[in-house]
């Protein structure tokens, strides 16, 4: 997937969503930010740092966490081990037991179901629980910015709603969120601002409320005719 002229800005404490249909380049955009794929040109900055060519693990250590598409949890580790894995990127955390336990406690508070299942292997969880685990694992890093790639993928609408409500709570706790979604309707409900990606280009951007009522977005992504 080729991207061209994608210009996205995320401000602190915002929820920004990047919506677009299948194959529009949403995941590619995130992979580009995390530097998991090579970029031919362009620039990515995070606070004052230029992270365009930074190594992926260094980017994470700066506080930019990426919850990948399809969750990518460790199936043969228990839930708690999965969560503990989350602090790899944060040397301060992983060497301070107390802070680590606090982090863990915080995640369990947000996702009580994970506490119940903490001894279970990650692979035995349901899809929604796995998604929660993936988000929780990202939160263990205490990131400044969390990028989520299609957290609604393959989940029942009720579960999606639960997860999106949790995203609002995570923002209240002070984490900025960049949300990539195909489910534009849901994403625009919780987001402050949004970008619409089409065939590798940003075709629309603006306040989430305005986008939700934009006729082009409606017809193309929300499945409503006007």
């Amino acid at each position: 997937m080729a991207l061209k002229g994608v210009n996205i800005e995320v401000h602190e404490k915002e929820i920004v969503t990047l919506i677009g249909s299948n194959g529009a380049g949403k995941t590619t955009t995130l992979m580009g930010i995390s530097n998991l794929i090579r970029k031919r040109s362009g620039r990515i900055t995070f606070y004052d740092w230029d992270i365009t060519n930074e190594k992926p693990h260094r980017i994470v250590q700066m506080g930019l966490c990426h919850v990948p598409e399809g969750r990518q949890i460790f199936p043969y580790l228990t839930v708690e081990e999965n969560l503990r894995m989350g602090v790899f990127g944060n040397y301060h955390l992983r060497n301070k037991r107390r802070v680590l336990e606090e982090s863990l406690e915080q995640v369990y508070m947000l996702f009580p179901i994970l506490r119940e299942r903490r001894k279970q292997l990650g692979g035995t969880l349901s899809g929604g629980e796995q998604q929660m685990l993936a988000i929780g694992r990202g939160l263990m890093l205490q990131p400044k910015l969390m990028m989520l790639d299609e957290p609604s993928l393959g989940l029942a609408p009720v579960i999606v709603e639960q997860i999106f409500e949790l995203l609002l709570r995570i923002r209240e706790m002070g984490t900025t969120i960049l949300l990539i979604e195909q489910n534009a309707n849901m994403a625009l409900q919780i987001a402050d601002r949004g970008y619409v990606l089409e065939l590798g280009q940003i075709v629309l951007s603006g306040k989430a409320k305005d986008l939700a009522f934009d006729s082009r977005v409606k017809s193309a992504y929300l499945g409503l005719s006007c």
Partner: peptide, 13 residues
């Protein structure tokens, strides 16, 4: 188990 996920957790794969 998962190289990509490990990198995204800040691990130098």
């Amino acid at each position: 188990m998962n190289k990509k996920a490990a990198a995204l957790l800040g691990l130098d794969v």
